[in-house]
Amino acid sequence: MEIYLPIAEMSVHWLIILGMGGAVGFLSGMLGVGGGFLLTPLLIFYGVPSEVAVATTASHLTASSMSGVISQWRRRAVDLKMAAVMIAGGFAGTIGGVYLFAFLRKLGQIDLVVSASYVIMLGTIGSIMLRESIAAVRAARAGQPLTAPGTAHHNWVHGLPFKMRFRQSRLYISVIPPLALGFVVGVLSAIMGVGGGFIAVPAMIYLLRMPTNIVMGTSLLQILAVTAASTILHALDNYTVDIILGGLLVLGGVVGAQYGVRMAARMRGEELRLLLATLVLLVAVRLLYGLIATPSDLFSVTVGTP
């Protein structure tokens, strides 16, 4: 049965949308990522206008990070203070990002910027992860113990001013890096429709040196707040949040995520990372192809006021 989306102003098959949400939910449950980086391009390939795709994915991420935060909260794996600092940066970034989004849309360059940022982000992260996970898989096959990244070493981050104590993370560091990290994630969320966990998690582990078990919950709480803000701002400025589309995606997503989590329990960590890296690189290559290949029609038409 086809269903009409009142904001996207198009009809879609509800099973396809549920399936999309389910598939992305499955992967995000399995790989521990939000899945925004997959969902936004998928929706755009399906024909949803890119501004609706970005804004609606943000509301989808609100739901998935909500259930994530609850389960992490039960394990007391959320550093509230750290999350609050990152959220403060995140709100500033989201506001800036939504205005940048509206400005780029006016210039007609929003599709280019969205695609190009995806290519750069995903390409970089995918390559790093691929290298790391291949090394890890090889090491595991050869039976060698892994050398864990050192957490005791101090880096440049510890030389910055405005230090603050984060009890739960057992850190005494400057507030500038978490603020800046939150800001970057906020901008990404507004422009690309992603939660930004794939940036925030590695940065929190390697740059801020937070304990790994707290990173996930803290990052999820920040994603929850930032995507909620992003949803409201997109609804206010661009009228692009489609509640029906969002609801269908969430329904598919929450079910898919549960199966993904169970699947993950049966797989090895380094294999999961290898899979994620491959996926990330595939999306990047597909988007890069879209930028380079000669389009079938050089002209594009937008209806409405510029």
Binding site: S59, A63, S67, T231, I232, L236, I243, G246, Q258
Partner: peptide
């Protein structure tokens, strides 16, 4: 926007 966020949070919580 608030309604969209509220709906998402409730669905996430329910799941």
């Amino acid at each position: 926007g608030l309604a969209a966020v509220f709906m998402a949070m409730v669905l996430g919580w329910l799941s």
